[in-house]
């Protein structure tokens, strides 16, 4: 009996379909729960889904490396999905044409500082080079950030955790700071959400208004492109 159960376990672990089914089930369950508790901005569905997967792996005592080997078949789609981001970017181009001057003035310093502030803080507190490399692309949307981390040589799990916290913090910070600074312009709030909070901030911006969402996705794509082009070069020049 137990011999055949072990054989079954081996067979199920050998196919990537188990990992794919677990991923889909956890994600759908997380979406359902998040919808039920009223979509709080501090708990994106990804976080809950990742916790569910981690808990399942731990309960079934499956190695996370085995799981990720199977789920890699799903993550393969990240490549075409990154290319797909070119479509909304093309659809937002009229905003760039109309507002290229303020955007050109704001985007490079904002995107660069998003990375520099955290790097400086982490460096002062004695983080290792690997940790610094993992935190550098923290404001960049995940598919682009994964490409950057390949160049810098950081830790993918740490980067993913950092992306998640950054997205949640940026959403909180924008809602906290908007009133004291007297900013009601949804274009500015959306752009700030996209630059600092990547996909998580963009989702929040679309909940505010379509205009905020459009500027958030613009901010997210431009930050991603700017960081992907500049960060690996800066890293090389700094000799890290």
């Amino acid at each position: 009996m137990s011999a055949s159960l072990i054989e079954l376990r081996e067979a199920l672990l050998a196919t990537p379909l188990s990992a794919i089914a677990l991923t889909l089930a956890a994600y759908l369950a997380a979406l359902w729960v998040v919808e039920r508790i009223g979509r709080p901005s501090w708990c994106p569905a990804v976080l809950l889904a990742a916790l569910l997967v981690a808990a399942s792996l731990w309960t079934l005592s499956v190695d996370v490396v085995d799981y990720q080997r199977g789920a890699g078949w799903l993550m393969l789609l990240l490549g075409p999905a990154t290319v797909a981001l070119g479509v909304p970017l093309y659809q937002q181009l009229h905003h760039i044409r109309a507002l290229w001057k303020p955007l050109a003035l704001c985007l490079p310093p904002a995107a660069a500082l998003a990375s520099c502030y955290s790097l400086t803080l982490a460096w002062v507190l004695g983080a290792s080079p690997e940790v610094l490399a993992s935190l550098a692309p923290k404001s960049v949307t995940a598919p682009i950030a994964l490409g950057i981390i390949d160049e810098l040589g950081g830790s993918v799990p740490l980067l993913m955790g950092g992306l998640l916290i950054t997205g949640v913090m940026a959403t909180l910070a924008v809602s906290l700071l908007a009133a004291p600074l007297g900013i009601r312009d949804h274009r500015i709030l959306g752009f700030a959400l996209g630059i600092n909070g990547h996909a998580i901030g963009t989702v929040r911006a679309f909940e505010m208004s379509p205009a905020a969402g459009a500027f958030a996705s613009l901010g997210m794509s431009l930050t991603g492109i700017f960081t992907a082009l500049c960060l690996p070069l800066a890293w090389r020049l700094l000799g890290l």
Binding site: T23, V46, M75, L77
Partner: peptide, 9 residues
Amino acid sequence: LAMLIMPGV
């Protein structure tokens, strides 16, 4: 996208 990056998280 969110589901695709989840295994990494």
